[in-house]
Design a protein around this nucleic acid. Sequence first.
DNA 1: CTCCTTACGATAATGCTTATTATATCGGAT
DNA 2: ATCCGATATAATAAGCATTATCGTAAGGAG
Lengths: 230, 230
Amino acid sequence: MINKKILIVEDEVKISDIVKAYLEKEGFTTTVAPTGQKAISLLKERYDLIILDLMLPDMSGEDICQVVREDSDTPIIMLTAKSDEDDRIHGLGIGADDYVVKPFSPRELVARVKAHLRRVKGKKDTSSFNSRDLVIDPLRFEVRKNDITVILTPTEFKLLQCLSEHPGQVFTRLQLVNVILGYDFEGYDRTIDAHIKNIRHKIEDNQKSPSYIKTVYGIGYKFSGQADAD
Amino acid sequence: MINKKILIVEDEVKISDIVKAYLEKEGFTTTVAPTGQKAISLLKERYDLIILDLMLPDMSGEDICQVVREDSDTPIIMLTAKSDEDDRIHGLGIGADDYVVKPFSPRELVARVKAHLRRVKGKKDTSSFNSRDLVIDPLRFEVRKNDITVILTPTEFKLLQCLSEHPGQVFTRLQLVNVILGYDFEGYDRTIDAHIKNIRHKIEDNQKSPSYIKTVYGIGYKFSGQADAD
DNA sequence: CTCCTTACGATAATGCTTATTATATCGGAT
DNA sequence: ATCCGATATAATAAGCATTATCGTAAGGAG
């Protein structure tokens, strides 16, 4: 979990540039959203932490904060010129985890970012991520491909999870049946094929040359995080 | 369970009295340690949060911070007159979770305390709110939707609270049973369904397409304010 | 009496199967 | 050695069986 992703919601380029530079120097991956709209649209991606300016041209940071909280408990650090006490209290009450007032020290901000990430790491971080583009999230029971959420059915999910947990290892259909459907399953092992097809349909760009689930002729299937290698 | 224990490490009586008063007004239980030695000896007890003055007569707050971090991750809010940037960064670096500079606003401090507690454990004492329209108020044991108070039964409330504290995360019925009814519950897990139905009846505008509690077919339920697209 | 639990039928979603089409492998002939 | 066809394996799509969820309502516990 080295590459933490941080979303910076800030309209002033001067500030976002500084924050971005400091965070990236520490090895974080950052994305900047200069408007609320942009931020909202980026929120379908998952971030490990969000730095949020309260004063945006198009919408208030509070609103964004609430939108975030509707669907995740990602740490939020509010960043703002408002130094009024009531604002700060409101900000913290509304679901922000921290509140930093401008002008602020970039180094302190970085320190706070680290402090929050350290905390989050404590709780179970089962986000088993597999390859560059594909994230399998057992907590949310969903799969994200290039940060776009893909809904799988329970069996599809289990199948993909099983394969992805042992990349490169080839599973026979029988093995997969045993794991996914249980040892007492008495059906046809070609059922697996159907599920594979459905999964591929959902996560593969090119059905013809799958990049995640590879077919091993005569044997079964395997998961490959690598681009085409055998 | 509502009684969170907070340790205040502060030598200036004037300040510790104020902090103590504000926190107790909010229902917290506080203990004051005027010296580092006293604080260390109190640490064998467990606290939910520690407010730590950096400038103590006998030892530095940093040292205490490190002692605490040796065997717990109790949130620490540093409280100090040092406003120097390096001090703040150092403070956050050695394991503090927050850093408040004197003179500080007691109300803001309380807000920060709540924000940290909310993150750590079940936020039994904070007014947690989730989406634009829905406010879950654990103090009053009630839910307000568009400022209209909705009365939930205890079980319904716990269920909604549990789900809303981890937006987006899918809970199986068994998990919910364990949390809500206890691990020794031996009944039918479909009981959860009934409660979900009742909650939905009370807070959802459209029963057919719920906007707060989503069902995840084959798995369980999750809380989400987002309109779920595919 | 309120709230929790359970039951049952209706409805909807998933999963399994089978038939069909497509693709890969291998061996033999040119 | 390359091409070609036969055969085996895999992919696709659609129908049906299965299982999950929802809503109403009634029984039971505190």
